[in-house]
């Protein structure tokens, strides 16, 4: 057993030594693998972060209920009180027409033009926010129908339609991401496989001698498999670093942007578990690429006298 372990350690150190002896080629290969691994992981993080960000919005599916012009404020407040009694309602805020006009005047920049109006063209309106646990599409639709049925109501506007569309787009992206992962994973296999093929060609004489003195295919294959694993580990490590750097670089700007929208959202990077998974996937891809390559090319090399 100790001999077996010693042989593996020897093969690992030998593979490390060979990679260190050709630093430029090693770095280039690792960079290609790293980028190929970083692209799908970065996309996955974008989708995940976007989901989290819009998750805040999902919890705030707001209705704006515009009353018909001429509806008395007292009636609007009465309906608001009635609405608060309904199960599944979080908040109901009444905005009188006068206040709405004042806010519009302040925020729109049309203050002087609005001053020329004799009457307030804006109606009273309610801002209705259902509880998050009562925000399923069925319940939201039910609430919309309930509000529309009031004779005093002119328009019921559901402010979260765009969130729903955005989430649908994220779903499409998420599905596309799997395809992208498979394609880029195949790319990593090809890069490792081709690099190992070249190394096998460079070491043809050594392989021949090793087989001549009784080295089995498994023995000859061993250092190449370690080389593949090291490439995979290096590439995955680089990918993790690129992602970490990207999250650090964008994190503050994204948080500042979220604050502008009243959100506490902050960009999430890779967890330790995610990083571990990425590194394991890198190592497995490297090993598998080397296995395919050695399987194809080592068998063709037989010793010659």
């Amino acid at each position: 057993m100790s001999t077996w372990i010693a042989r593996h350690v020897q093969a690992l150190l030998g593979a490390l030594g060979r990679l260190a002896r050709m630093p430029l080629a090693t770095v280039l290969t690792v960079v290609v693998i790293g980028v190929a691994l970083a692209i799908p992981v970065a996309l996955a993080l974008v989708v995940q972060n976007a989901r989290v960000a819009t998750g805040d919005f999902r919890n705030a599916i707001d209705f704006t209920v515009h009353f018909k012009l001429g509806t008395p404020l007292a009636r609007a407040e009465q309906l608001a009180r009635k609405l608060r009694q309904r199960p599944g309602i979080d908040t109901v805020i009444v905005t009188p027409a006068a206040q709405a006009l004042q806010e519009f005047r302040r925020n729109s920049g049309f203050g002087e033009a609005l001053a020329a109006l004799q009457d307030n063209p804006l109606p009273h309106h309610l801002l209705v926010r259902p509880l998050p646990e009562h925000s399923t599409p069925t319940e939201v639709e039910s609430l919309r129908r309930y509000l529309t049925a009031w004779p005093e109501v002119d328009i019921v506007q559901l402010d979260s339609d765009w969130v729903r569309r955005f989430n649908a787009i994220l779903d499409v992206l998420r599905r596309g991401l799997w395809g992208g992962m498979v394609v880029l994973g195949l790319g990593v296999l090809a890069v490792v496989g081709n690099t190992i093929r070249l190394e096998i060609q460079n070491r043809r004489a050594e392989i021949e001698v090793t087989k001549l003195v009784g080295g089995s295919n498994a023995f000859v294959r061993r250092p190449f498999l370690y080389t593949g694993v090291l490439y995979g580990l290096g590439g995955a490590g680089l990918a993790a670093l690129l992602i970490w750097g990207g999250v650090e670089y964008l994190g503050q700007s994204v948080a500042a942007l979220a604050t502008q929208y009243g959100s506490k959202f902050s960009l999430a990077g890779l967890t330790w578990r995610d990083t571990g998974t990425l590194v394991a996937i890198g190592a497995i891809l490297g090993w598998f690429g080397a296995l395919i390559s050695t399987g194809r090319h080592l068998r063709r090399i037989e010793p010659r006298a």
């Binding site: 001999t3 077996w4 020897q10 003195v213 080295g215």
Partner: peptide, 29 residues
């Protein structure tokens, strides 16, 4: 087997060349 052209690994010391048949047979160090 001994060859006219020796078939030695030129980048390895004599010790490693001679040890190769035992290494491939997983002989204890």
């Amino acid at each position: 087997v001994v060859f006219q052209d020796h078939k030695l690994l030129m980048d390895r010391p004599v010790y490693d060349n001679v040890a190769l048949p035992l290494i491939v047979a997983d002989t204890p160090l």
